[in-house]
Nucleic acid binder design. Structure first.
Lengths: 353, 353
DNA sequence: CTGAAAGCGCTAACAA
DNA sequence: TTGTTAGCGCTTTCAG
């Protein structure tokens, strides 16, 4: 049986060549858009292709060229507004540059992340954009690099990797928010996160760690003692976190201002406030990270820290594509983007109980 | 130069074979997990593979088998909570069945959808899950089918395609919500959507169309005249939609109850209410589709229609994989899942102005 | 400008 | 059980 037989349903470049009456190489050249081709041959091929409904096979193309024009994106939580927006922006800028995107979700779980990276390597993506779940267990990223698959870190930094990264200046953002509280007269200011503090600070992701540091620094700069009881960490479990917040609200020396590390945390805090009868901004003040749409629909509208997600995503994508297109040598770079404090109605002078 | 030379960085199955001292076929058999292999040969190969850091090349594998074990997901808006959750659930169940997922976003734009589908076909995904932006322009889906790439519709139905689909029973859900309003004594009930009504109802996506129909039917069942001024459609533009809602709120015969087609629309409505000084549930009642997290953080908590997204996504994925694994013949099936009305604090008896 | 032929890394008959 | 031999559909020298 000849190799050029009809193989089933999908027409191949050979089929087109035969239908056009030219050689496979010529057909392939015009279909693939490379090499020379006479104008009449081109015409013939294009017609035949249209007639047969030819669709190029990217697998075969990648197989031959060794490049897939695809970048893999590995994020911790696609249901998180912040990452959803980032993914959206990443695919937009990648597409604009001729790259496709494949996505994987890790649920903040290192094992899932490891296997996601493995799958991407097997699919031979040209490069990776990753928001690593851990700043310690990064062996799979080291391996990716070793296999010649460059990566850029999204939103999270991992110093030991010496990798390219694009993130928010979380230290400055937290510092600014806390300073705003201080400026309004607050002294007992709480930081609330749903990350687990297990194993110590170094196991926190860099954004959370840096926000904590910015928080402490701002207090110190204002001459306020840092009270560890005011820094609350959950464990991904909202009920548990709510309990801790409730305790703090009902203690003798309750906080008068709260900085929520994410909008999801702010939601938990709001429900506790309602439950214990604290009202914003009369009784307590609140600022949260992430400018979620709903924050202007509550009463009062929330003062938030808005992050330039689109810029972040474009920057990370462009950095990676830069690497892919030849810039293998320049040293790794950590890019930090500034967040913006948007003042709305949730910060006020503390009431004197 | 022999073909088995070290080609650069990535070791191939041949490299492993040579290092293990067996034939390429044997090595391939154990590495690929198919065919027979003696236990000592297997041992040898596995060791060599580990030593060289062998990673299989999926491209080559797919090339040879004709299957990629990958499904393409094409959604209208990844930033939309509803789709984000669906994507998450789809990847989870696909992974559990040994499939990878590649994702594309279309922004509700048919041209982007067309090109996304084309890319997926070029990547030779085994099948597609699509929430089509249009129920009219579906030529690319017809083409996909013709090329032997099965697809299942997610959340949206397109009768003319005669395709498998899994969606919510939107008619019943809207009917139930409106009946709840009626039961509380409302007569002037509005439906608000940000879809464009341009070109008539048939251009609406099926969920919006069916919600509109359920809304009308419920009114008729209650003996209430359907007033077209009470069905508000935007055009994706929030400011414009807000203006229309404001007009309705300030007109002589304002509505006393609002059914929002999405949580994003509810946000727009809430801001208008605040602006014109209408309070829930004293002055107006509100129900919205989508059980977004924030709906319990506003005052009062919103009565919502909760959709079983996870079940929806599992069902759609399983249906597709079923098709992929041999069930090519059975007729297409439209699955409808029931939504649930969750009563919270935003529905009340209408005030008498 | 066009055609012939080799090869990307793997799977899959078939023979030994 | 193992090895041999064809391909999968495309790109890419290298001659003609």
């Amino acid at each position: 049986m000849k190799t050029n037989e009809r193989s089933g349903t999908q027409p191949t470049a050979s089929d087109v060549a035969r239908a056009a009456g030219v050689s496979r190489a010529t057909a392939a050249r015009v279909l693939g858009g490379y090499g020379y081709a006479g104008s009449e041959a081109r015409e013939l091929v294009l017609n035949a292709a249209k007639r047969l409904g030819y669709q190029p096979n990217q697998l075969a193309r990648s197989m031959a060229t060794g490049r897939t024009k695809t970048i893999g994106v590995v994020v911790a939580d696609i249901e998180n507004l912040y990452f959803a927006r980032a993914i959206r922006a990443i695919t937009d800028t990648a597409n604009a540059k001729g790259f496709d995107v494949v996505l994987a979700n890790t649920d903040e779980n290192v094992d899932l992340e490891r296997s996601a990276v493995r799958v991407m390597l097997a699919k031979r993506v040209d490069g990776l954009i990753v928001s690593p779940a851990s700043s310690v267990e990064v062996d799979h990223l080291v391996e990716a690099r070793k296999m010649g698959c460059p990566f850029v870190l999204l939103d999270r930094r991992v110093p030991i990797l010496q990798a390219d990264s694009v993130a928010i200046d979380n230290f400055a953002a937290a510092h600014e928010a806390v300073s705003a509280f201080v400026g309004a007269g607050h002294k007992r200011i709480a930081l609330v996160s749903n990350s687990s503090l297990q194993g110590g600070q170094k196991y926190l992701t860099s954004p959370v760690r840096e926000r904590l540091e910015g928080y402490k620094a701002a207090l110190q700069d204002a001459g306020i003692r840092v009270d560890s009881k005011l820094a609350i960490f959950g464990a991904g479990d909202n009920d548990n976190l709510a309990r801790k917040v409730r305790n703090l609200c009902q203690s003798e020396e309750r906080a008068t201002a709260f900085l929520a590390v994410t909008s999801a945390v702010a939601l938990v805090i709001l429900s506790v406030f309602r439950e214990v009868g604290l009202s914003i901004p009369g009784d307590v003040s609140l600022i949260c990270f992430e400018n979620a749409d709903w924050t202007i629909a509550v009463t009062p509208p929330l003062t938030v820290i808005s992050q330039p997600i689109k810029e972040l995503a474009s920057a990370v994508t462009e950095r990676l594509i830069g690497r892919l297109e030849g810039d293998l040598t320049s040293p790794s770079k950590e890019t930090l983007l500034a967040a913006t404090l948007i003042s709305r109605g949730s910060v006020n002078t503390p009431s004197l109980d």
